[in-house]
Nucleic acid binder design. Structure first.
Lengths: 231, 231
DNA sequence: ATTCCAGGTGACGGTTTTGTGGCGTGCGCA
DNA sequence: TGCGCACGCCACAAAACCGTCACCTGGAAT
């Protein structure tokens, strides 16, 4: 597994360099940008694996920056961690709403940062060799973000796709609703656990016409399981 | 799987109780301590599965408390989550260096706390080699919460599954109804001992079509035994 | 043989968990 | 600005499961 590339967008140079230093020492490849403009340029230049974005940037707010990236299809899946100072704490919510995958308040320890980075990467990154998964003829292709059967594509919303992708890369195992929230939605979101049932149903319905809805099994009292074996 | 036990060490009573309440509602068993001293006593008394420690305690800093535990061989593996107020944020570094497995800043949402707890517990709980058990072709797979024979799955309700899982991981040994209540239902539940017989029957019936019902043996006057050997 | 009792059985009502359809909202897009 | 898609959530329906009870059974003790 090659080194993950992280782009740090932060205007205060000492901070930026300290972060970069720590990350490099941890084995990441690091690129730096001092403002949103050059940040965008860097992203366009070569897609990093993860973005660290300061909340306050000289030219735009990190929020705007994030929003823009999350809107673009090309960069939508790019994981973003927002850096906020304590004073800006009230905006956390907004930061997440804006689409950041996680945030971290300054000051933070290198260890904390690493923990979050790894968490987010783990979430975002298809585990080794799961770029393409075929289960009983149901085919997940992560690079094109599509799931298909034969030559037909299963119609899925973004959330359904993420959930199905997660399931297909983690079959034969029961996941609680809480775990699903954590792994499919991401750590810092508040969503009713009940809602998961709704998405399960939508996913089942989408798979139904292909005859694959049976793969999503309910484990009463525990959660759900994706399995090729009959219940 | 019986309920995990969590010890909350926090001097501010309302906060402590709120946390305890939330955790209990989430199915944890909770013990409380108001200062480091009684905290230590509680730990010594009976090792909990996880520790929630406030950063500021009347007698010692949470840091010292944690350090001490991490130094002791007996408690080194005990997972610790530190609670810090925002104002103490700068000390995070020290907190983590001190050996806490995670920290969380007040105020926090119950869900966030639960997520961290589960994450830490999951990390701390490496399988005991009972992940997969095969007895005479009857296969228990705990990660998928399923018992199967050949390619067919035994249809079990939650309680039946728990009971069978317990039996398969503790074979060749007689358990009284009371013991079963304790280990399968988990301690503080009021259920008629008579009821166990009913579940035994249900379990036998479920195993019947696979020819495995013979594995559950009645020991008159004592209880039940799961054994591959006939008798 | 008769009695007695632990344990087995089948049925039932209540409770909890999950499935389902629908509604309102927010955001991207035209 | 208006439209349509996703999404989150609610309220209700359906299903699964659980704990008990009343009654049956088989064998051990007398």
């Amino acid at each position: 597994m090659s080194a993950k590339q992280i782009l740090v967008v932060e205007d205060e140079r000492p901070i930026r360099e300290m972060i970069a230093f720590g990350l490099r020492r941890a084995g990441f490849e690091v690129r730096e940008a001092a403002d949103a403009r050059s940040g965008r340029a860097e992203v366009a230049n070569k897609l990093p694996d993860l973005l660290l974005v300061d909340w306050m940037l000289p030219d735009t707010s990190g929020l705007e920056f994030t929003r823009a990236l999350k809107r673009d299809r090309e960069t939508r899946e790019l994981p973003i961690i927002m850096l906020t100072a304590r004073a800006e704490e009230g905006d956390k919510v907004a930061g997440l709403e804006g689409g950041a995958d996680d945030y971290i308040t300054k000051p933070f320890s290198p260890r904390e940062l690493l923990a979050r980075i790894n968490a987010v990467l783990r979430r975002a990154m298809p585990a080794e060799g799961t770029e393409r998964v075929d289960i009983e003829g149901l085919v997940l292709d992560q690079s094109s973000q599509r799931v298909s059967s034969g030559d037909r594509t299963v119609a899925l919303g973004p959330t359904e796709y993420r959930m199905l992708a997660f399931f297909m890369t983690h079959p034969e195992r029961v996941y609680s609703r809480e775990q699903l929230l954590d792994r499919v939605w991401g750590g810092n979101v508040y969503v009713e656990e009940r809602t998961i049932g709704v998405h399960i149903r939508r996913l089942r319905k989408a798979l139904e016409e292909f005859g694959y809805d049976r793969l999503i099994q309910t484990v009463r009292g525990s959660g759900y399981r994706f399995s090729a074996r009959p219940l």
